[in-house]
C-alpha cells in the first residue's frame, strides 16, 4: 500500500528533523545553568575554585554539544517514510482495537507498507503516550487528597488502558486489588507511610 500525499515543504522539513527537540533541551539546560550560576549566592568563605566553576564548565560544554548535535541533525535528517499498518490488523496480544489511522496526528506524509529495504522513520503512538503520561499526572495530583488506594488503582487502570487493555471494568478490580495489596503489605505490614486521603477513617482500623 503506497499512499502519496503532497506535503507542505516546511512541515516535511521539520517532520524529518523532530530530533531537534534534543538540542533545544540541551540549550535550555545550559541557559538554566548559566542563569543559576549568575544569580548564585556564594558564601564568602568559599575557597577558589568556588561553587560556580564546575557548573559553568558543564554549561559551556552542553552548549557546544547542542550546537554540534543540531548541525548533525539538520544535515542528516531521518528517513522520510514511516510504516503504516495495512488496515485493521490488531496488535498486541491480538486484543488491541484497530489503531485509528496512525496518521491521525494529521501529518502529511508518504506511507509505505511491506518494503523491508527502505529505511523507515520510527513512528510513535502519540495518543497512547499521552494517555500514559496523563494518567501519571492525575495520580500525582490525586495522591494527597484522595489517598494511595484510589489513586494507585486509577494509575494501574489508566496505564493499562493507554497500553491497549480492552477490559475497563475488569481492570478496575485488578487495579484496586493491586493497590490494596500494596497498602496492606507496605503500610500495614512494613510500616511505610502511604497517604490515606479521603479513606482515612476506613483505613485507620486496619492499621
Amino acid at each position: 500500500m503506497i499512499t502519496t500525499t503532497s506535503a507542505r515543504p516546511a512541515s516535511a522539513w521539520l517532520t524529518r528533523r523532530t530530533g531537534l527537540v534534543v538540542p533545544v533541551i540541551l540549550v535550555a539546560v545550559s541557559v538554566a545553568l548559566l542563569i543559576g550560576s549568575a544569580t548564585m549566592v556564594v558564601p564568602t568563605t568559599a575557597a577558589p575554585p568556588g561553587p560556580r566553576v564546575f557548573p559553568l564548565i558543564i554549561a559551556v560544554g552542553t552548549l557546544v554539544v547542542a550546537v554540534l548535535l543540531a548541525i548533525d541533525l539538520i544535515r542528516n535528517p531521518e528517513p522520510q517514510y514511516t510504516r503504516i499498518q495495512a488496515g485493521a490488523r490488531g496488535i498486541d496480544d491480538g486484543r488491541t482495537e484497530t489503531v485509528p489511522a496512525l496518521g491521525a496526528a494529521g501529518l502529511d506524509e508518504i506511507a509505505i507498507d511491506g518494503d523491508e529495504s527502505t529505511p523507515l522513520r520510527p513512528r510513535s503512538n502519540v495518543r497512547a503516550l499521552l494517555g500514559a503520561l496523563g494518567t501519571i499526572v492525575v495520580f500525582i495530583a490525586a495522591l494527597q487528597p484522595l489517598g494511595w488506594l484510589i489513586s494507585a488503582a486509577f494509575a494501574f487502570w489508566g496505564v493499562a488502558r493507554a497500553l491497549g487493555s480492552r477490559r475497563p471494568v475488569f481492570d478496575v478490580f485488578v487495579g484496586f486489588g493491586l493497590s490494596a495489596a500494596v497498602q496492606l503489605a507496605f503500610s500495614a505490614g512494613l510500616g511505610l507511610h502511604l497517604p490515606p486521603g479521603i479513606l482515612e477513617g476506613v483505613l485507620s482500623w486496619i492499621r
Binding site: 500514559a132 494509575a155 494501574f156 497500553l163 507496605f186
Partner: peptide, 24 residues
C-alpha cells in the same frame, strides 16, 4: 499481557519513589 505488566511497573515505580522520600 503486556499492558498489565507495565501498568504494574508504573504503580511500583510510583510507590518506590514516593515511599523513599514522601515528596510529591
Amino acid at each position: 499481557p503486556r499492558h498489565y505488566l507495565y501498568a504494574g511497573i508504573t504503580v511500583f515505580a510510583l510507590l518506590g519513589v514516593y515511599a523513599t522520600s514522601a515528596k510529591i
